[in-house]
């Protein structure tokens, strides 16, 4: 066991995968709690597809992938948030529209330029080899920013998640914080998607929050538990990916599914216990 760990960590690409993965998992878990509770989970999914399109275009143009993808996805995040907040347009339909469109654009661009090859496969399902030094630096900066902002604005994030109207009435600028959450989510998704895959990255946002909600009964509890579950599942997933040569994204999702199952059982057992006592 220890031998395998040492062997794994002797490869620089594995160290990078663990670092970026754990930090992205941490950020997405924190942001995910608010997104899931506000019924904005689909935005995460939509953004990953936009990210796929942006990465494809960037590759075709020979531009730096992150430099193109991050601004595009941020714009999409703000846009999607507006659409969801506007009750006159059907938010879920609009998100589906935008995500399939981006996917189509991405696939078209790739097939016209380089052709459908392993790159596309890696974008879709993620690759453990995808992380560069640059990504490590960016993800460290990003997660530091997310953590600091999250702790600093924790009470306000709780207030707007629980009751946006009340928060606004007591002078909290809800629109500003919603946009902040959307922008941070966008950056997190772009950073994580090459490892997790465009189709699977939104699981990092949704699973930890839902898992923790099975058992935890306070907001703080859900936040802390999500962060822990997310990072543990990511590390477990990458180890499985390394040992069994499975795609990284899918392995991490499998770990998350296991965690959700375990937490659900604990939740059910505890509810029974409570009812009996």
């Amino acid at each position: 066991m220890i031998d395998t760990m040492v062997e794994m960590l002797s490869y620089p690409f594995m160290v990078r995968a663990f670092t970026v993965g754990a930090l992205v998992a941490l950020c997405s878990a924190l942001l995910g709690v608010s997104l899931v509770l506000k019924r904005y989970s689909m935005i995460g999914d939509g953004l990953s597809h936009v990210g796929f399109g942006a990465l494809a275009v960037a590759t075709a143009l020979n531009a730096a992938p992150l430099a193109v993808a991050i601004p595009v996805v941020i714009v999409a995040a703000v846009l999607l948030l507006r659409i969801s907040g506007n009750s006159r347009i059907k938010g879920d339909a609009a998100i589906a529209l935008i995500s399939t469109s981006s996917l189509a654009v991405g696939v078209m661009v790739i097939s016209v330029t380089t052709g459908m090859n392993t790159d596309v496969y890696n974008y879709m399902f993620g690759s453990i080899l995808a992380m560069s030094e640059e990504d490590v630096r960016l993800s460290v900066i990003l997660s530091a920013v997310v953590l600091v902002l999250f702790v600093f604005f924790y009470q306000k994030i709780f207030a707007i998640t629980f009751d946006e109207t009340f928060a606004q009435a007591t002078g909290v600028k809800a629109g500003l914080y919603n946009t902040l959450i959307a922008v941070l989510t966008a950056v997190t998704i772009v950073l994580g998607m090459r490892m997790m895959g465009a189709l699977l990255i939104s699981s990092l946002i949704i699973f930890p929050a839902l898992t923790s909600m099975r058992v935890c009964r306070t907001f703080k509890g859900v936040i802390i538990s999500s962060a822990v579950v997310s990072v543990v599942c990511l590390i477990a997933g990458i180890m499985v990916s390394y040992l069994c040569s499975t795609p990284a994204g899918a392995s991490v999702v499998m770990a998350n599914i296991t965690a959700l199952a375990v937490y659900s059982v604990i939740g059910i057992l505890r509810n029974r216990g409570l009812r009996r006592s």
Partner: peptide, 10 residues
Amino acid sequence: TDVQKDFPAS
């Protein structure tokens, strides 16, 4: 609101 019916908060 609907959100509050399923909200984990003490």
